[in-house]
Amino acid sequence: MIDYSSCVACQECGQLHRYNPVAPGKTATCQRCGSVLYRNRPHMLESVLALTLAGLVLFILSNWLPLLGLRAQSIEQEFHLLGASIAFWDGGYHVLAALIVLNTIVFPLFELLALLIVLLTIRYRWEPSLAIVLFRWMRELKPWGMLEVFMLGILVAMVKLGDMATLIMGTALWSFAGLVVTMTAATSLLEPFVVWRELGRDKRVPTN
């Protein structure tokens, strides 16, 4: 049996490496396939925590306020984030409606809440078992939260409707754009290697 506590395996190709701390701002990459092994980003946990809190506020605004409005001959239609799936539900496509609710509301919210709990657990040294489960599911479900794809969908729909009727940009459109930026920033800043190391029960070594 070899001692693997100081080993890091490349997530993409399985190549083993010995863990060597890298200087702040630097990145360690796999020597075979070049994928990122781990990065040293100072204040990573604090930055992601700040972005997560901002994201939660923007999430509430984006769901609460109207996203788009359409006016045609004195009739006005309002459209909320949930409206996309209500439209499919009313049309009899229940599975599609469920898929869209998951993609645009449930998974992004889960991601924000899971990140919040995980980061607070690390920050205040709480018992990590809940955070471990949440962070695992967050990583697994990550590709299924599709806010940025939905943002592109809004833009395409806006151009398509442009010459048909008067389009009203709702307040939530701006908070939604902010939410997309915030969550993308949080995702690219987040360093799963550090989070797993911090959550690992046996080796709670402080980083940075």
């Binding site: 459209f79 409206g83 996309a84 439209a87 499919f88 599609l96 969908g153 395409v156 729909a157």
Partner: peptide
């Protein structure tokens, strides 16, 4: 495309 259809259906 699925999202565009959903938005258009919900709005128009």
């Amino acid at each position: 495309d699925v999202f565009v259809i959903a938005i258009l259906t919900g709005l128009v």
